[in-house]
Every structure is written in C-alpha cells, then in structure tokens.
Design a protein around this nucleic acid. Structure first.
Lengths: 228, 228
DNA sequence: AATACAATTCATGTATACAAAATGCAAATG
DNA sequence: CATTTGCATTTTGTATACATGAATTGTATT
C-alpha cells in the first residue's frame, strides 16, 4: 500500500518537525496521500517513529500552505483538489510566470544566460530518453533558472509553491510524447525572448506555456474525476 | 436565531493555537513586536496564559508565512524587514493587483460594482475625518471588494498576505494628508476602468497605485533605518 | 586585570499524560 | 421499525515532563 512507503529520511540533520513536514508534503504532492485522506496523528507518529508533537507542528505548516484542511475537533485531512482550485492556482501562476520572464529580461546575468541555454539543450536531450522523471527534472531545472534570475526571493518562494501544487498532474502531461516538440519550441521562444531582453515577448511566451499546461492538466483532472 | 448564537459560540471556541496565531500575527504586523525581537515560548505562554504547545504551533505557521525566522536551537525571532524584502513583496503585489483588476473587469457582479462605488465614496468620506484608522479601514474595504470580485480564492489569500506585510508602513503613508487627493483620484480611475470593463486601464491604474505606495513605504523605511 | 574553564541556568526539541469532544454502536423506547 | 439514549472508543486539544544544546556567570589561574 502507498502508506507503507512513507519513510523518514534520517540522514537529514533537521528538526523532526521539518523532516516530517517534508515527508508529508512530498507524499501529498506526489499523490501518495490522496485528497480526502485523513491524517491521524497517532497513526502517523507510529508510522514515522516519532511522537505526536513533530507531527502536529508539521501539520500546522501544511495547513497554512493549503495542502491539508483542518476540521475542528476532527483533525487534518489532505485537501481536496477541484477543477476550480487548480484553475485558480494556474491563473495566479500565469501572472507570476509572466512577471518572472519580464524580470529575468532585466536582471539575468551572463552566467545565468549560459545556464539557461544549457538547460534548454538539456531538456531537448531529456525528451529523447522518453523517461518522464528525467524530462520533469530538466523542465524544473529550466524554470528554476528563470525564476532565480529575477533575484526576488519572495517571488521564487511563491512560484515554486504554486508549481508544486500541480506535480501530480504535470507528470501525466509530460509523459505525453506528442507534446514534446511543442514544449521544446516554447522553451526556445522564451529563451530567445530573454536573450533579446524583450520583456513583452518573454511574458507572452510564458503565458502561452502556462495556458498549454492548463489544457493538459484540466483534461487530466477530468479523467481522474470521471474514474471516481 | 438559534443558529446565530451557535455561530458566535463557535467563534469563541477557536483552538488556542489560532487565537495565539492571530494575536502574534497582529502584534508583528502592527510593529508591537519588533523585527529581531526574540519569541520565547515560556515567556509568551505565561503572558498569554496558555501552555507552550499552542504557542509552538502558532509559531510554525508564522514561520511558513515568513513573519518569523527560526534559528536552530535558539528559537524564533520576528523576521527582519529590509528594503530589499519590501521591494520584493511590492514587486509581486504589483503584478497580482494588476491581475486582480483585470479579472475584476471580467467577473465583477452588478452588486459588487455597487459596493465598489460605495467604497469609493466611503474612502473619500473617511479622508475627511482625518482619522488614520478609519481611512485605513476604508482603503482595505475598497481593495477587498476588487480582490473578492476575482472569484479566485488562492489569489485572495496571496494578495491579502502580501498586503499585510506592509501594514506597519502603510499606516504612516495614510497619515500623510497631502496624499489624500491623489489616493481618491487613483481609486476613481480604478473604479471607472472596471466599470468600463477596460482591463488594460484597470491593470495600469492598479500598478500606478502600488508604485506610489512603494515610494512612500520606501521613504518610510529609510527613515526608520536612519533612526537606528 | 584578563582569560580559560567549569558549573549552572535557560530555552528549545521531543515525548508523554490528561481532558474534552466526536464518533460508532448497541440497547432501550416510542 | 425508526429514533433516541447511553456507553465505550477514538482522536484531537492542551499541559507538563524530560533531555539536550547553548549561553552565561562565576571562579580560579596566570
């Protein structure tokens, strides 16, 4: 069962609450813990080999992040994901990704520009392996460079958070090989726009990128809901 | 009526962690707790008349929100606010406020449009009282209507969070009576743009609004830092 | 007087204990 | 037969206890 895969990474030298937080977070984002599933403290504590205290503190953070919802006197459960909530996330992300692209035009360094070029090539390479995990990693790496180039830490934090909300669905999206050519092309346009310092073009390209992602994700979630 | 009573009671039975969270949050945002100040659990627990547990859980939320920073084995302290961090917040908020204005053009209801008109008038009235608290409240009410009109809950949450990061400084800004005329005018432009469903104008007006706020806030924080 | 070092204090990190509320089920009641 | 009442169980909410690491103070020595 999926639950049995929940393991604490003891190598990390972090307070237990952070280890638990990261563990639960990942489990929720990957779909290992499914929407609506109850998070019972004693159960989790036993499973992760810690006391309730770190579990509770981790849940408080997940609560603020919107990954779990609290029901008074009943505890936490994994937040339900609706088509609407995903659309909301994408709508915000669309604006922030466009902002990232614009700011990157203004602020990207020579070195980062080189990294971005490499990341584009890396993504193209990754699609050839047809390994979804590899492709996803290359995609994240590419976007991370652009986001980091803004030099705005708050923006980095927010965009990453929003992006992670869709990890579950993005995976299915990336597996679809018919999309790969389009993705490579979109990345190329974004890269070239930033190279030219063309804010408008970069922002527009980033928006197109998200819009296409939205189509796939919405299709995916409708499939999911249909199966229920 | 029985329902109403139940509702009131429910509010009073908020978990202590939430009471503590709200209390500390407000204290930080109003400047009652100053940047760099240590948040010692036992001390706070005694002060608020609760045990350490709710205090700790509240701190975990404040930590994720960025209002406190954790130092390992040393505890929490109120997050330092730098010019850079405020600029970062404003940069993101500028984009999101523009998004709110655009979305409001598309989605605002007749009823909300009426509320917006009233809120504009209410703000103008409030400036006449010269009571900064009243003015601030009217300003928040006006913006809340626009943000709510987007119908995007995630966006509401994010914009509110970003706005609150500047409560301290915004207050000084609002006290400055020479700015009142300009503020009224800016609100009017935003209102009229939304009425005309002119997305571009609304977004532009929202950005101008934030840019002006940025000027004041930056001046304010430089004063603050100078005094140290 | 200044520095090194040990003892003590203090705060955090974690675990456990206890109280109160909610849930489920079964027996009792109409 | 449906509904309610009471009890046991479960789970959260809160408090407290214990252990470890960090800081500080005081003392002794140079």
């Amino acid at each position: 069962m999926a639950k049995d895969q929940l393991q604490v990474n003891m190598d990390e030298f972090l307070p237990l609450r952070d280890v638990v937080f990261n563990t639960l977070r990942k489990a929720i984002l990957t779909g290992e813990l499914k929407p609506g599933e109850r998070l019972m403290e004693i159960h989790l504590a036993a499973r992760l080999g810690v006391s309730r205290t770190p579990i509770r503190e981790a849940i408080r953070k997940l609560e603020l992040e919107g990954l779990v919802t609290m029901i008074p006197r009943r505890g936490a459960e994994v937040a339900q994901i609706t088509e609407k909530s995903l659309k909301d996330v994408l709508e915000v992300r669309r604006a922030l990704d466009a902002l990232c692209a614009e700011l990157a035009c203004d602020r990207i360094s020579e070195e980062e520009m080189g990294q971005l070029r490499e990341a584009c090539a890396g993504f193209e390479e990754a699609t050839k392996t047809k390994d979804a995990t590899m492709i996803a990693k290359a995609d994240v790496a590419l976007h991370d460079i652009i986001v980091a180039a803004t030099g705005n830490r708050r923006l980095v934090q927010l965009v990453n958070n929003l992006a992670e909300q869709m990890y579950r669905y993005r995976f299915e999206y990336i597996k679809d090989e018919s999309q790969h050519e389009r993705l490579i092309e979109e990345h190329r346009i974004i890269y070239e726009s930033i190279l030219r310092k063309d804010r408008q073009a970069a922002a527009a390209a980033a928006k197109v990128h998200i819009d296409n992602q939205e189509k796939s994700v919405m299709q995916q979630i409708r499939l999911d809901n249909g199966q229920k």
